[in-house]
Amino acid sequence: MVDAKTVTRDDVLEVIRTELAGFEVSADDVKADASFESLGLDSLDLVELSVRLEDAYGIDIEEDDLKDVWTVDNAIDVILAKVGKS
């Protein structure tokens, strides 16, 4: 679905910004080093975000993938690793 070679960290950050608008998070606050907690997201929000990112990138995100995701940067790492494998 997504060409791994063309996806950059900035691309993923932009997609996360777009998806987080659905959680009433201002795009200006979504920086790579921001923690999801600081953005006001709880664990259930993170599950919802992961479903939206699964749909956006055509990937499967498992519970183990989320256990070390605390920041936007962590989420970008997961997405890039998954897209690389797809």
């Binding site: 259930l44 599950v47 919802e48 992961s50 479903v51 939206r52 749909d55």
Partner: peptide, 9 residues
């Protein structure tokens, strides 16, 4: 089923 229900709210 839950993931889809969660994203559908």
């Amino acid at each position: 089923a839950l993931k889809r229900m969660i994203s559908a709210r």
